[in-house]
Design a protein around this nucleic acid. Structure first.
Lengths: 204, 204
DNA sequence: CGTATGCTCAAACGATCGTTTGAACCGCCT
DNA sequence: AGGCGGTTCAAACGATCGTTTGAGCATACG
């Protein structure tokens, strides 16, 4: 039972963990509030409903994540020397750094669930709030891959995001060797993912 | 309400559809039996429990799918002229042909959900019953990509399966152009996926 | 001191879940 | 005709779900 932080923060933390482990429907408010060490009614008092709690769990992480992604993209977008790998790095590195925060890796599992569950309400929420990020990256990919038709480009981006979401939701399976620092391991991981994605996007 | 076939078949069909749409927990036996046009108790009578129904939904498709995959793999495995693309074709083509069967495309969504939900019971079932398929493909990938360490190979295969599962669970989003036959469209799709996967596996 | 205000609490609400029950019904064999 | 295994049926079981309620508590302000 977590006893640090405000009630809202404890609920958000416990929600992230349990949503990752059991899914949005699978995690009950009773399990959740019990793990957070708060009263059952606290969720509806502070968030209004379980669905709005889900949205806040996403907001807490995605606001920061996508701000970092856009900041990194801005440094390389629409510039002459930019390589495909630079854009992919701007997309992937912030997500992996988030994975290293407390509970951050769990959040990537939550995100993977959101992709698999074809929940219209959740997809609409994500599209309305964070769709512009994907649109900016897509525009830059289109610039760097002019020989791909719009159709092919969309498809390949879909494949890449699928691979990355899948991989990062299971992140941690790739064991860090002893003697390798956490930072060096993450750097290796970023480069592995970037190389894979760049090769896929560039495929003949 | 479906009225064709035996009670067991109608349940399996409705289960596949509803599991794809709402998830394993999200689809209730009452929705399911109502859609199948059978009595609520029929599920427990014919399958024993909801969990065993889930397993049968997987079995019905995966037995045939993996048999086709292994048959296709056997034709190219351990032979001198085999290209990476041939092995990937053996893995991907049967899945896409299944997607074209009635309800088959829905099954790929079910499969994507099973990946995202980290349900231990389900993962154990899939591993015990179909793990040998992935092991055979992995062995052949290892033969064709000798310069990759075992660690790197496992990771890239994980990325590829993630991309393919993600893409095929959303299959149908890539619209078939008018004037292109269903068969030609599927052939194009297979080659797109194979090229992407081969490039990713082969990345420097 | 009295009283708002923000928050927590135990308890209960109605709804829905998977499962079980026992009677009714079916075609088939002797 | 009569009984019998296989199947279907409506109904109910206990459990658990998200949400609501109203009393109780703490702190701050007049």
């Amino acid at each position: 039972m977590n006893r640090t932080g405000s009630t809202k923060e404890r609920i958000l933390g416990a929600a992230e963990t349990l949503f990752a482990q059991r899914g949005f429907d699978g995690a009950s408010l009773r399990q959740l509030t019990s793990a957070a060490g708060v009263n059952l009614a606290a969720v509806n008092y502070h968030f209004g409903s379980k669905e709005k709690l889900v949205e806040q769990v996403f907001r807490r992480r995605l606001d920061a994540l996508n701000a970092q992604r856009l900041a990194a993209l801005a440094k390389v977008a629409n510039q002459p020397g930019t390589r495909l790998e630079d854009v992919l790095d701007a997309f992937i590195r912030p997500a992996l750094e988030l994975s290293h925060d407390d509970g951050g890796s769990l959040f990537m599992r939550v995100l993977a669930r959101a992709f698999a569950e074809h929940d219209d309400g959740l997809r609409k929420f994500l599209s309305e709030n964070y769709g512009h990020v994907m649109r900016q990256f897509t525009a830059e990919f289109a610039r760097l891959l002019p020989r791909l038709s719009k159709e092919e480009l969309y498809w390949r981006i879909d494949l890449v995001t699928g691979a990355l979401t899948h991989a990062m939701s299971g992140f941690g399976m790739i064991q860090r060797k002893s003697g390798v620092s956490e930072r060096a391991h993450r750097e290796q991981t970023v480069q592995h993912l970037v190389r894979f994605a760049a090769a896929g996007l560039n495929a003949s």
